[in-house]
Structures are given as structure tokens and as C-alpha cells.
Design a protein around this nucleic acid. Structure first.
Lengths: 173, 173, 173, 173
DNA sequence: AATGAATGAGTGTTCATTCAT
DNA sequence: CATGAATGAACACTCATTCAT
């Protein structure tokens, strides 16, 4: 992992813990055993750092959507829930930054149906309280959430044997 | 509305739009047609401002829980959803600040069941996208969300006539 | 005692305790149960306050010199010591300010003989440690100091006509 | 001499000339051809500056006491006077700060005999008027003061063993 | 005679950023 | 590649002072 990537990773952690404005470049540098000024050999500005961190998180969410398996709505929804939560769990720091800063960076949400919003809302909020090192495994969480989602949408959870009647919906962040 | 209340209101707006650290006292003052220093006739410090804004939001959420009507689970849940969303809608700026700062202020979430977390997650995320002046009325939103919640929990939405098959669960924050 | 005199008295106390720059006009006003701005009905500026306080202390020292009794040197010296110390004791706050600020206000000391400097030094330093409410009366202090001064100058203490034999002492601060 | 020492030295001078509160960090910086903020690469706070300046002065006085030669009281007293005055002369700025701030820092004077107080008073006051670049050498001053002290205490000045007859003098402030 | 609201300059301090070495 | 010294603009906050009421 090269210096720039190191910087981005640590920056993600610090931004998510303290917030972007509350994190100083000197503090970031100290975590890398560097002097403040030395960062500027690798980056242009603090803002570039934020953009990059957010961009990487956004990309991962995007990829989940793109790689949804073909199949019946219930299966797809389950994959969505699991994938989305996995990104949040694996990218907790970046995701945190993403959720706190998306306003400044992304076009407004449009035309998203209520049920989708409801589902994504529940999923997105997870970063506020979920801790991978806690007692709840990601699989257990995904399983439980997927069931709740499918029930809320009136779709029976498929593999474990239910059958659906309503059409599935795609969510977009 | 006296000066102090004015200050708190505007501070709530700015903190929620730009974040606490990104909002300067001079900017806050400018919105009140004052010089930066003049604020300190009414407040002790910037941090007091944050605490007060957050406290007021927390109080309103608390009151929703305390004033839940007696009755069957479906009715209570509906009131919870509606009440919670109403607070978010009416206190959007304060709620935003609250959600972004609760880490620093509240005891850790404990022993909250998954279904409750799921529901509250969906509700809490609302502040990220809901705009009272938008096309969706608060009643419409509450109605739709409450239905989804009740379905997810396996409880039929009562007055409007659905019927449930699984046991209901109570949520708490 | 009119308002202006009250203000000067309290100002003397505060300036002597905290120093001129460390004393704020608001604090001074609070001690008089006033608002900060209200002081300006009685005074022109904070600096005027300092000048006045210092001037009043200087005047009292001046008067001691002018009112020295005629007589032999020992008698006059005794009166000087007593008078000087009395001013310090009675005007402790003002004297403190005076001693800390005289540089800014008075022409440089010139042509003062060493013995005089020595004596005045000892007397002037008194304000740093003497407290009228302490165990040492002003008379006792004056008596002892006058004796030491007279001995140092090789003049026998006249009226009471003592001769000393006190051993040397080690001083420690 | 490194930057930090430079800063401490200049700070000592300015604090002694203008007083601690009346000296701004920007002014201190200007004397070092720096911007205000640049000082903070070398120090933690303005108060640290004061503490350090005072501490260094206090240490030097302490060392005089510890290094007093063994011998008869007259010899020791002479060494004390000379040592004490030398510190004042050599550390004029620091000593000035020390004398103006000792209240905030040192335990109250206790159990010190009057003669000692008298002597130290005279010595300590010296910082108010003595200027090393003036017409009076430190040796001349020490010699004269030591004699006065010894006489005041009724101890003949030993090695040089003089006897005095100087007449009384009038002092003026 | 006094208030309370406000000002504008100043304070100590932090910070992102630059650059010669 | 990294430092260390420095900058200059910003920040939160304090203060002496003014003035309409």
C-alpha cells in the first residue's frame, strides 16, 4: 500500500471519527509519522482528501447495485440488503464520511419510491450504531433485516421457502 | 421571540446545513445582522449553543415516547412512527444536529431489539432526505411508513383494516 | 461618598489586586452594582481612572515629606519612616498601584543618595508583604524600622535614646 | 541561542517593561520578526511563557541562598547582599516579572524576622530603580548596601572593617 | 442616573499551506 | 522524501466604549 493510499485510509478513519472540519492536517500527519507539510507531496489539498474518501465509498455502493444477481425480486432484494450492509460494515469509516457529506457532493435524490426510501433509510442508518466487532454478525444482521424488508414489501423470503406476490423494487442511493 | 431564541434557531439551521465545526460565530452573527462578538451578550460559548440545540431536539423525541397512547401494539406503533416523523419534520435543523452529534452526548444503545433498530433506523434516516416543503405530506409519509413497519413486524395496520399473522413487537429508542 | 469616589476606591482595590490591564471595566462595574457602560457617566476613560488612583497615592506620600517636623535628623527620620509606612498601610491598594505604575508616570529619580535609596527601598517594599490586619501593628513596624534605619545611617535613635546590640541575622525569603 | 530561548528572553524583557497582560503575543512576535501564530511552534501558551520566565528568576535567587559561604554572620550577610543584588542586576527583566507576579506563585512569607524583611525589602526594591548601564557599578552598590545592612543589624563590617559617621539624609520618592 | 444592546478593534490560538533545505 | 520554519487568514472570544432609551 503506497503512501497516498495510506493517507486516504487514515483520513477516512479520522474524518469519520472526528468529522472533516474537526480533523487537522497535522493530526492526520502525526498518525502517519510525518510532519504536517509532508502530506502535500502526495495530495493537493485537504478537500481533495475528502472528495477521494467519499468517492471510494460511493463507488462501492454503486458496485453492489451493478452486481445484483438476476432472479426473482426476493432474491435480488436479499442480495441488495446484504451487499449494502456489507459495504457499510467493511467501509465503516468511509461510509460514515459519505453519509455525512453526500449533500455537498451529490445531485438531489429524485423519484425514489417510498418503499425504497424506507428500506434504504433503515440500511443507511446502520452505520450509526453497527460495530463489526460487536456481538451481532453481519450475516445475522443481513438475514434479519432482509426478512423485515421482504415482509414490509409483502414479499415472502424466498430461499427459506416463502413466495412473493408484489413486484420487487430497485433502490438507488 | 427574544434574541437568545433567535440565536438558537439560526444556530440550529446553520449547524444542520454546514455542520457544527464548519459554522463560524461570525457567520452566525451575520445572519442576525450582528457583529461576531455581540453574540456573547446572550450566550456563553459556541459549545453551549450546540448543547442547547441538541437538548431541545432530544426533549421532543422523548416526549413522543412518553405520550404514546395506550392501546394495541399496532395503534401505538402508528403513533410512534407519526410522532417521531413529525418531530423530525418540524425540527429538521435541530434533529439533523442531534443525529450528527448524539455520539458525543448519549449513553450507548443497549439491548434494543433488531426490529426496533430497523424501524428507528428507517425513521431516523428520514432527516437526510425529507423536506417539509416537498411534494410529500407528513401524513402521507407517516401513513406509508407505518404500514411498512407494521407489515415488517407482521402486524396488520389496524384502523384501515389489514390483519396480522405474526406477533407484534414494541419498539423503544 | 459620591459615585465617582466610590468608583475610584473600588478601582484602586481591583487594580492593586489584579493589575490594571487584568481588570475589566465590566468587573469594576459589577462591584458597584452597575452595568459596564454606566461608569462613563462619571469618568472619561479607564486610563483616567489609573491616573487618578496613582495621583492620589503620590499626593499622600508628598504630604508626608512636606509635613516633616523640624528638629534633629533622628527625629525627622523617624517621622519620615512612620509617615511613609502609614501611607502605605492606609492606602495599600492605591500604593500598590502607584508602585507598579510609577514608571509610566513620573520623571526619573535623580541625584538621590544611596543611603536614601536604601531606606526608601526598604520602606517601599513593605507594600508587598505588610497587611494591616496582620499580627504586626503599624507602630511596632515603624518603631523597628526607624531603629534599623537610624543605626544604618549611624544616627542614634534620639528621644527614646536606645543603643542596640542585636546580633546579625540571616535572611531568607 | 535557539528560538525558544530567544522567545523567553524577549518575553522577559517585554513582560518586565509593559507587564504581562499589556504585552500581546503579536508584539512579542514582531520583536522576533515573526507572525503571531508562529510562536506556537515553540511554546504552548502565553502563560507557559510567564511561568518559565518567573521560574528561571526564582531559581537564581534560590541558588544564592544555597551557595552562601560558611563563616561569620557579617561575611555571610555580605555575600547574601552581593549575590542577591547581582541576580537582580543580571536578570533585571526576569526579576521584575518575578517581583510583580510572586503573589500568584509562591507560598506566603512566614516567620521571617523584621530585620530580615527590612534587608530583603531594601534589596528587592532595587529592581525598581537600578540600571546596570547607569553610573553606579554593582560592586559599589553592593558594598554600600552591605555596610548599611551590617550597621543596621549592629554588626561591624568584618574584612574591610570600617566604621561610619555619615549624617542623616532626607529621602524623596 | 442607569440600562442594555451593539460595536470594532484586539486577544490568544489554530490551521492549511508553502518552501528552502 | 521529508523536514522544520514560517505565513496569513481564520477562529472563538473579550473588551473599552458609545448611545438611544
Amino acid at each position: 500500500m503506497d503512501r497516498r493510499s495510506q493517507i486516504l485510509t487514515i483520513a477516512g478513519h479520522l474524518f469519520s471519527q472526528r468529522g472533516y472540519h474537526a480533523t487537522s492536517m497535522r493530526e492526520l500527519a502525526r498518525h502517519l509519522n510525518l510532519q504536517g507539510g509532508s502530506l502535500y507531496a502526495y495530495i493537493q489539498s485537504k478537500e481533495e482528501l475528502l472528495l477521494e474518501v467519499v468517492r471510494q465509498a460511493a463507488e462501492r455502493f454503486q458496485r453492489v447495485l451493478e452486481e445484483l444477481p438476476r432472479g426473482d425480486p426476493a432474491t435480488r432484494m436479499k442480495a441488495l440488503v446484504k451487499g449494502h450492509l456489507r459495504v457499510i460494515a467493511e467501509e465503516l469509516p468511509r461510509a460514515t464520511v459519505f453519509f455525512h457529506e453526500w449533500k455537498h457532493l451529490s445531485p438531489p435524490l429524485l423519484e425514489v419510491r417510498l418503499a425504497t426510501l424506507f428500506v434504504l433509510s433503515a440500511l443507511n442508518w446502520t452505520y450509526q450504531w453497527y460495530r463489526p466487532e460487536g456481538p451481532l454478525s453481519l450475516d445475522e444482521l443481513s438475514e434479519a433485516y432482509a426478512k423485515l424488508v421482504l415482509k414490509a414489501l409483502g414479499v415472502a423470503a424466498s430461499p427459506e421457502g416463502e413466495h412473493s406476490e408484489e413486484g420487487g423494487e430497485d433502490g438507488e442511493a
